[in-house]
């Protein structure tokens, strides 16, 4: 995607949505999953992903689990109970936002 600022505000919701679909995920896996789903259109950088994950962890929305994998430790993230509830709220908010944007960008389409 050319303008990364457009998705910056939705990054936390994207992460929560992916974790809702998987039991647990690690940072690199999240970047690859997003790349795969969007066919390379969306590339989440390390500089954006990890601060977002740490913020969600600090807010108590994510819990972490460490596992030893291939000579190194891997930090897995999973949703907490609070995180599961918050995911539903944030997805609703994002959907409403997308609908609002559509009414602005393409009013005829949104009326139909």
């Amino acid at each position: 995607m050319g303008n990364s600022k457009l998705y910056k505000g939705s990054l936390n919701t994207i992460i929560l949505k992916l974790l809702e679909e998987s039991e647990k995920m690690y940072g690199y896996e999240i970047t690859q999953k997003v790349k795969e789903i969007t066919k390379g259109e969306l590339n989440i950088t390390e500089g954006a992903l990890y601060p977002a994950l740490h913020k969600l962890e600090a807010e108590g929305l994510l819990d972490v689990e460490m596992q030893k994998v291939d000579n190194r430790l891997r930090k897995y993230y999973k949703l907490t109970e609070k995180g599961t509830k918050e995911t539903a709220n944030r997805l609703t908010e994002l959907e409403e936002y997308i609908r609002t944007m559509q009414t602005i960008i393409n009013p005829k389409w949104s009326i139909q």
Partner: peptide, 17 residues
């Protein structure tokens, strides 16, 4: 340590990929 562990895994995963 917690941040570095995560970054090591990220870099290693990308190199392996």
């Amino acid at each position: 340590e917690d941040i570095r562990i995560e970054m090591i895994d990220h870099v290693a995963s990308e190199i392996e990929s």
